[in-house]
């Protein structure tokens, strides 16, 4: 019940992290908290409740606005792993 309420709250206040994949060229991640790792094959980012891993070749990151990161390059995979106690 409470978790449902928080989910609704997050959705209404746009606190959910959003991942947009454009072909295999770009991954746009909104509501980022932290960049944990960044090199030309892996970019690991922490968002609200998830850890997002972008694997690929020649990866470059760009941040155009607050808490939004675009990962450019040849994307091979995107892993979304839930963080927190229940994980």
């Amino acid at each position: 019940m409470i978790s449902d309420f928080f989910e609704k709250l997050k959705r209404n206040f746009a606190l959910n992290s959003s991942v947009t994949i454009l072909n295999n060229k770009q991954v746009l991640i909104e509501n980022c908290k932290n960049i944990v790792e960044c090199n030309d094959i892996l970019v690991r980012i922490i968002s609200s409740n998830y850890e997002i891993e972008v694997w690929g070749v020649n990866l470059k990151i760009s941040n155009y606005s607050s808490k939004t990161i675009a990962v450019n390059g040849e994307i091979q995979s995107v892993n979304v792993v839930k963080r927190g106690k229940n994980n």
Binding site: N34, C38, N63
Partner: peptide, 22 residues
């Protein structure tokens, strides 16, 4: 402190493009 640097960019809303860590 590369990770710290990238997070600072994120926190302080510094717009960077084509960031490559090597």
């Amino acid at each position: 402190s590369i990770s710290k640097l990238l997070n600072k960019f994120l926190d302080l809303r510094i717009k960077c493009r084509n960031l490559i860590v090597s």
